[in-house]
């Protein structure tokens, strides 16, 4: 049982939770994730560790309500508990001094991007963050990102904030302006696919963090498998980060629709 100590709503659908998990707080690094179960009937849901405080013994999770389980997590309040939290899982991000690093994120991908931005900056990189969302209200973690990086570029689909355009437009602007040594991209699969296509054109090494469907998160089931460079990989143990230019995004998007019908049903039950 892991108690929720504090909660902040970043937007209508995105909650930031500080959760008691002293052992995980001590072991985690940027890029790691946990698996969470809300109660004894709950699904095992993967969530990135956005931040941690070793002294307080807490980890921070940023959760976006997309389906039934994630919606219920965003509805928890301080004092409530998560039935299970296990981790840290996956490989940590390969943090090095690359030079100039562009970190781009969309949707809830911005949360897992945050610890990477922080770590890349601490490692002495020039870090430029590109945040993208449909509209102004959905931009999250802007202040935190500004504090942890050299520059933040905001892109919105409707132009209600920052520059009007897609994340790829923002990244391309930077590439045309200065030499970029590394790109890190976390967001919806389709966004990662297009960022990968863009950086491939410019031949810039790019990391993506994949958010496939998972069950155990320990390499035991293979639900999370993706094709990377023509080989089958398990995202939970071989990833979650991979070379963006090797990932078969189309197959991944297809596989993520496996439980579409069940998801719709669960959501309608939750709303009833």
């Amino acid at each position: 049982m892991n108690k929720i100590l504090s909660k902040k709503m970043f937007s209508e659908k995105v909650a930031c939770l500080e959760v008691e998990a002293p052992l995980i707080a001590r072991s985690r690094k940027a890029g790691h994730f946990v698996i969470v179960r809300i109660d004894e009937r709950g699904e095992r849901i993967p969530l990135t560790i956005a931040d941690a405080d070793i002294q307080k013994g807490t980890i921070t999770l940023v959760v976006q309500a997309v389906g039934a389980s994630s919606t219920r997590i965003t509805q928890l309040e301080p004092g409530d508990v998560l039935h299970d939290v296990v981790g840290p899982l996956g490989h940590a991000t390969d943090i090095q001094k690359y030079g100039t690093v562009v970190c781009c994120g969309g949707g809830v991908g911005v949360a897992p991007l945050y610890p990477i931005v922080k770590a890349m900056h601490e490692a002495g990189n020039r870090v430029i963050v590109v945040l993208a969302a449909r509209t102004k209200d959905l931009i999250i973690l802007e202040d935190e990102m500004r504090a942890a990086s050299d520059e933040v570029i905001i892109m919105t689909d409707d132009g209600s904030y920052g520059t009007k355009g897609l994340v790829t437009n923002g990244v391309e602007t930077v590439i045309n302006r200065e030499k970029v040594d590394k790109v890190v991209c976390i967001g919806p699969t389709i966004m990662m696919k297009f960022v990968a296509l863009l950086t491939k054109k410019y031949d810039i090494s790019t990391i993506v963090s994949l958010n496939t469907i998972m069950v155990d998160g320990t390499g035991m089931c293979g639900a999370c498998r993706v094709s990377v460079g023509g080989k089958t990989k398990f995202v939970c143990v071989d990833g979650p980060e991979f070379d963006a230019h090797e990932v078969d995004f189309d197959e991944m998007m297809m596989r993520m629709r496996a439980y579409k019908a069940d998801e719709v049903e669960a959501m309608s039950k939750l709303n009833a």
Binding site: R41, G42, E43, V215, C221, G222, M254, A258, E263
Partner: peptide, 29 residues
Amino acid sequence: ENAIGVMSSNEYLTRINLMGAGRGLGDTP
């Protein structure tokens, strides 16, 4: 082999035995 609906026995049995899927015992499908 990566088509939807091809899965390991571990995944299939874990979903049903451990998570209670398909038996009305949990949220996992």
